[in-house]
Computed example of a mutant assay.
Amino acid sequence: MLQSKEIRGPAWLTATALIAALTGCSETVVLNPAGDVAAQQGDLVMLATGLMLIIIIPVILLTFFFAWKYRQSNTEAEYDPEWHHSTKLELIIWTVPLIIVIILGAITWISTHKLDPYRPLDRIDAQRALAPDVKPLEVEVVAMDWKWLFFYPEQGIATVNELAAPVDRPIHFKLTSTTTMNAFYVPDLAGMIYTMPGMQTELNAVINKEGVYKGMSSHYSGAGFSGMTFKFHGLSNEGFEQWIAKAKTEGKTLDRTSYLDLVKPSERNPVERFGKVDPKLYHTVLNRCVEEGQMCMHTMMAIDKAGGESYARAKGLNLSPDMCTTEDAAKLTAALEADASTPAVIQQ
């Protein structure tokens, strides 16, 4: 039988080699992303870590130094039991961390505004500014249970669990959810952004390298959460046009009826493409009125703004005091649409 001393050396060598191999082959996405927004966020992580290491490294080194210098066997070390204060030491201990906190605070304030997800991009990357005539690619995102639905309103298509965008073109995401709060996250593209039912969040980002990148849900949302992933394709302009053409040619039709089937919970849903899409579908999903006859949230808010029950009576609508029926909703919606004094509140 081999003794433990005989196998200890080779085991340690093997473990060291494996760790070195993993370290050399792996790449931390957060610090080496393919998109400019994510790269700026990664730079912030490195900068903040570097500033904090100004304190951490000396503290660690001094801990070992003091432990060695004042060890029990070192009888030559100076011993002063009455020592209790040093002005110079106090200045160093408090001034240096205070300066670092002030610097971090300033960086946080600036970067919070500069990297606001709602703020339109002003550059493609660190070397190239964004031309004023470049129009961002519009993508509308719906987080479902447990899959992602992407609308391309300008191109007239939609996809499930597959996202694509041209390299070096800004992307403007509008995001919502169907039933529960979720989080949209493509590490190579930008930081995560939350999605919530009946609400819309926004994200501006750009991808700078062609490739296939991982997208995911980074907020737990139930049983199928682990499979709620998708692929994000960074393509050339020609490749993106081919991708759009393929979706239009091979895709199905997505309207209110097919959406109600799609929205049913499913796990690890395969990629689906829709070549014909109801242009108002995302609007109805956001306002939670996909089902026929259901009043949209923005219509309810418009009614409240117009005066609520008194507005309905002024329009000659005698509504039930207990509930609003489908017929009532249709009458109120028609009244709002016909009211020339409230055009702004019925548009979105």
Rank of each mutant, 00 (worst) to 15 (best):
F65Q: 14
F65G: 13
F65L: 15
F65D: 09
F66R: 03
A67D: 06
A67R: 14
A67H: 06
W68Q: 10
W68Y: 13
W68T: 11
Y70M: 01
R71M: 03
Q72I: 05
S73N: 09
S73Q: 10
S73W: 03
N74Y: 08
N74L: 05
N74C: 02
T75R: 14
T75V: 15
E76Q: 12
E78Y: 07
E78D: 08
Y79S: 14
D80S: 12
D80Y: 05
D80R: 12
P81M: 04
W83L: 11
W83M: 08
H85T: 04
H85G: 02
H85Y: 12
S86L: 03
S86A: 05
S86Q: 11
T87I: 08
T87L: 13
L89M: 13
L89P: 00
L89H: 03
E90S: 13
E90P: 03
L91I: 10
I92P: 00
I92C: 05
W94I: 11
W94L: 13
T95H: 01
T95Y: 02
T95I: 13
V96P: 02
V96A: 04
P97L: 03
P97H: 05
P97D: 04
L98Y: 10
L98N: 03
I99R: 09
I99D: 08
I99G: 11
I100W: 04
I100V: 13
V101W: 04
V101G: 01
I102L: 11
I103R: 00
L104H: 03
G105P: 01
